[in-house]
Simulated scan of single mutants.
Amino acid sequence: MIDSIDRPLPDAPPGNWVDRYAPQAWRPYLRLARMDRPIGLWLLLLPCWWSAALAAGALGRPGPDPWHLVLFLIGATAMRGAGSTYNDIVDRDLDAMVARTRHRPLPSGQVTPRQALVLLVALCLIGLAVLLQFNGFAIMVGLASLIIVAIYPFMKRVTSMPQLVLGLAFAWGGLMGWAALAGRLDPPALLIYGAAIAWTVGYDTIYALQDIEDDPIAGIKSSARLFGAHARLGVGLCYGVAVLLALAAVVLAQAGVVAYCGLAAFAGHLAWQLSRIRLGDEAGALRLFKSNRDAGLLLFAGLTLDAILRNF
């Protein structure tokens, strides 16, 4: 029997639009696609925007292509929803054993696996429609990401660093932004992709601190469990690598001073996060994780303004 309880999820922002305005019958599906928790959308989208802005500056364009930015926004919304739905289909039994996730639509019975599969197919078709708007090379790059997306949900069962596989998938936009504009991949694109991978491992380790007590019961592995009491050091190493790789990308793209200012602001925000990490503070870990939207926007703003000023 499907549980009809309309239960907001604990990591959703209070008063989000799904809980306040969406028809009650739609809410389980919107929650399944994480529409009530937009932070994942931002974290998937920002590497796309970084790469698009970096490519624009390097290729002499006066800022990233606005149409590309819109397409990336729509595509990231659809594919984040599809990825979350797929992940929840695979993990529905594990989610039932973790306090933070047991009330998600699938483990709580608000949505059946068949209904979730229909939603997954619909979201993938939207993502495909967006991808087909780009050049042939970018289309092939985008399709290649599906291999990583397909294996990610199983990694928490076999490796203590599933966050690395998540990084490979979530950072893929670091390749897409450049490919969509240039029709090829150059070293700065590979470096900004690497930076986004390291950033993802760092922020998702902070996120995993919320479940560090329940994960062993469910048999879930994570970088938070791997680092243990040294979580701050582990996150700091990831963030340090992210900043260094982003710096190398900016140098090779021959960016100007405004891009370096954006990178410095990004690095400063990451340093602030490190200073606030407290083991056992689940609410604080969630706030720090969500603050990465602002960190990523600082870097995007610097890269975009630099491209505009250099090529105006």
Rank of each mutant, 00 (worst) to 15 (best):
F154C: 04
L128C: 00
M140Y: 10
L131T: 11
L128Q: 01
P162S: 05
S160C: 06
K156Y: 07
L143I: 15
Y152I: 06
L143A: 14
A144R: 08
I151S: 07
F134N: 07
L143E: 11
L164M: 08
V165L: 03
V149L: 14
Q163W: 10
L128K: 02
N135C: 00
V130N: 04
G136P: 08
F134T: 14
I139F: 10
L146T: 14
R157Q: 06
L164I: 08
Q133W: 03
A150E: 07
V165I: 14
A129T: 11
I151C: 01
A150W: 07
M155E: 09
I151D: 09
I148K: 10
M140C: 09
P153G: 06
S160P: 05
A144W: 09
G136L: 07
V130T: 13
N135T: 07
P153E: 12
I148E: 10
G142W: 12
V141W: 09
I147Q: 02
I139Q: 14
L164Q: 12
K156W: 04
I139T: 13
F137G: 02
L131I: 14
P153A: 08
L132A: 06
Q163Y: 01
F137M: 05
Y152D: 01
M155G: 04
R157S: 04
I148P: 05
Y152V: 01
L146Y: 15
Q163E: 12
L143M: 13
S145R: 02
I147E: 01
A144E: 09
